[in-house]
Amino acid sequence: MAISVPWSEHLSTGTEAAQDEVVRWYQGTRDGKSYVPTMIWGTLQTEAYATVILDQVVRFLGIPDDVSAGVAKRMQRQQVLYDGEHHYNVVLGEQALYTNVGGPEVMEQQIERLLGELDLPSLTLGILPSTTRVDLFPVHGFNIYGDGDRVHVELVSSSVDVTEKSEINLYLKAFTELSSAASHGAAAEELLTKAHSFWTKSSLRK
């Protein structure tokens, strides 16, 4: 079973309420999994990066502008990384390190944040190299919450929650394939350092 809610409805009052809901999702998930192919996972975003993302959401959807409040909630949700009660297995596509969100300075700081958090006990961070062969057709990003009883997918027009066990099992299978192909530890650090160097030396810098 999948429940789809249009963003026009879900974000009708702005971003803060939706971000507050996400905080509760993460607080209630002891063991979460996320695949994010083209941007940085929200729980590891810097304040500057998150501000750009939520500002784009507000402008694109034409919803009330409460970006600062939404960003504050997104920063609040990051507390789950430091409370010793949660663990998150996250796979980022290598493209996520190069998708230009906010310009070179924002991206440089964002990559530094990832490098600094790579050894967190609460985090298993994998980077899926763009040229690595994966035994799975290309798929959209997704988050597995509630310790495996709910999958959340974000589309252009709506958010979708999957609760049917057989469907969730497919997402778990997909995540296993993606995580197995991803680089972890020193190999992930090497990819992050390469991306950091790219943004540091970027011709796009002012």
Rank of each mutant, 00 (worst) to 15 (best):
M1K: 13
W7C: 01
E9I: 14
E9G: 08
H10A: 15
T15K: 03
T15I: 09
E16R: 08
A18W: 00
A18I: 06
V23N: 14
G28L: 10
D31M: 13
D31G: 07
G32M: 05
P37N: 10
M39A: 13
G42E: 06
G42V: 00
T43S: 12
A50Q: 08
I53R: 08
L61K: 04
G62L: 13
S68C: 05
V71K: 04
V71H: 04
A72I: 11
A72H: 07
K73Q: 15
R74Q: 15
M75F: 04
M75E: 14
V80N: 00
Y82F: 15
H87F: 03
N100S: 13
V106M: 12
L115P: 02
E117R: 15
L118C: 05
L120T: 01
P129Y: 00
S130I: 09
R133M: 12
H140A: 10
G141M: 02
E154L: 12
S159V: 10
V160M: 14
V162A: 05
V162N: 06
T163M: 12
N169I: 07
Y171A: 00
Y171D: 01
T176Q: 09
E177L: 10
A182V: 03
A186C: 08
A186H: 11
L192F: 07
T200H: 14
S202R: 06
L204C: 09
R205W: 11
